[in-house]
Design a protein around this nucleic acid. Structure first.
Length: 427
DNA sequence: GATCCACCGGAATATAGGGGCG
DNA sequence: CGCCCCTATATTCCGGTGGATC
């Protein structure tokens, strides 16, 4: 590690010379958009033919797209969208596409504001630039709505609004946004709006008003999960660009594909596996990425994402999580929300934090469950009530380490928690 | 079977903090 | 500044309930 310290550049020398594994690692990132999307021709054609009327300045049908994560939904829509914009510009009609990720932009206000903002960014003319743009907060929502309509009328043409992860939007703030958006055409003279909704959840339409649903799902397209051979094709295509020739052991790609196929055919996952496998091989100066690196990568990806997830938790959630760790330490492998709350109250006193109510804690517990940090299930214990049970299934050591990094949960403070007294109160 | 515990989880409401506008 | 709007977090209230025990 330190033999070349006396040479100039010594520290980074080996990184410069070492390109035994990767040729171009960027190709393996999610953000990279390949020109060819293998095994998605039918879906691309379907989207394109539905959107085609936009070129003739007619309103395309709204589309709902279903498919699990990593099945290429976003990539395909982006691809068709950019082609449409290109062709539209050539013919001289105004076709514009706005892409929103509803996981981030999850309220009606933000959706409307973001659409308007994207439009401003697209229309580069100075007069539009000069117009007062919509603040990210502050206005009444219907004012934003009116302003958006004005912007649309000003430029005319067809606007395709892509609502990625639309199920998140509906779950967090209901279908009012969609109701307004699907009706916006009725209020417009010169401009036309068409909506593409992308959803991971097949059943999210249960939450929708039937009128919204029928309007939104004039067309439906399903993206099936990739199977292992298809994933192999995708990986092979990228690997050719990303890896130095011969730096991949033969079995590596099929193995990555197989792992990812087990997990609902997630191409993103497969690419992560391949990239991390390469990185691990690179780091240990191996000639080739081998199958063992894939297995190491599988493990690394899992723990890395968990560490990231836990360390960015709000303090209160960390305290709740810590309380669960204490219970685990007391040899309670499964514990109820009531127990967690009791331990939590004790911990919150020592850590000097305002204690939350039980109700709030159940919400935090549910969040931890959604994040996959713990597992929960609701069980009835007959006469002894109904409660939510939870347990860890990954290594608690790592969680402990990550939590300890938070200054408010430092070792010294937590040493004050009287385990024995707590334990006694559960007998 | 009927009962009834200990909590679940929806809804309404409060609080604090971001901001615009006149 | 006061007034309004939006969001996130949290509290209060409460109807609802699965199934072991009576």
């Amino acid at each position: 590690m330190s033999e070349n310290d006396d040479q100039p550049l010594g520290l980074f020398q080996k990184f410069l010379s070492n390109n035994r594994i990767f040729k171009n690692r960027e190709v393996l990132r999610h953000s990279y958009r390949p020109q060819i999307l293998p095994h998605r021709r039918p879906q691309i054609d379907a989207i394109a033919s539905i959107l085609a009327p936009a070129i003739k300045d007619e309103t395309p049908s709204n589309i709902l797209i279903y498919g699990k994560t990593g099945t290429g939904k976003t990539a395909c829509v982006r691809y068709v969208g950019s082609e449409l914009e290109k062709v539209g510009a050539g013919v001289g009609t105004g076709c514009r596409v706005v892409h929103l990720n509803c996981e981030v932009i999850d309220t009606q206000y933000r959706v409307l504001a973001q659409i308007a903002k994207s439009l401003e960014d697209l229309d580069a003319t100075p007069s539009d630039r000069a117009r007062a743009h919509i603040p990210m907060t502050g206005w009444p929502t219907d004012q934003v709505y009116t302003e958006l309509k004005n912007q649309l009328e000003a430029t005319g043409g067809v606007l395709v609004i892509v609502l990625d992860e639309i199920d998140k939007l509906v779950k967090k703030s209901g279908d009012e946004t969609l109701y307004n958006l699907t009706r916006i055409n009725a209020d417009l003279q010169g401009a036309k709006v068409s909506i593409i909704g992308i959803s991971n959840d097949l059943r999210f339409t249960d939450f929708l008003d039937p009128r919204v649903l029928s309007s939104l799902s004039e067309e439906e397209i399903v993206f099936p999960p990739y199977n292992a051979p298809q994933l192999c094709d995708i990986l092979a295509q990228r690997a050719e660009m990303a890896f130095v020739e011969g730096s991949l052991e033969e079995g590596v790609i099929p193995l990555c594909a197989a792992f990812a196929a087990q997990e609902h055919g997630d191409a993103r996952r497969a690419l992560d596996l391949l990239r991390v496998s390469g990185e691990l091989a690179d780091r240990e100066n191996a000639e080739q990425a081998k199958e063992k690196h894939v297995r190491m990568a599988l493990d690394k990806i899992e723990t890395d994402s968990m560490i990231e997830c836990i360390s960015t938790l709000p303090t209160q959630s960390k305290v709740v999580l810590y309380s669960m760790l204490l219970l685990e330490e007391m040899d309670k492998k499964i514990f109820t929300s009531g127990e967690v709350t009791r331990v939590y109250r004790e911990v919150s006193r020592i850590v000097n934090i305002d204690p939350l109510t039980h109700r709030r804690i159940t919400d935090l517990i549910s969040e931890l469950n959604m994040l996959g940090v713990i597992n929960t299930r609701v069980v009835s214990k007959g006469r002894y009530g109904r409660t939510k049970e939870m347990w860890f299934d990954s290594n608690t050591k790592k969680i402990q380490e990550v939590l300890a990094k938070d200054p408010r949960l430092s070792e010294e403070r937590l040493a004050q928690v009287d385990l024995n007294r707590l334990k006694a109160s559960f007998r």
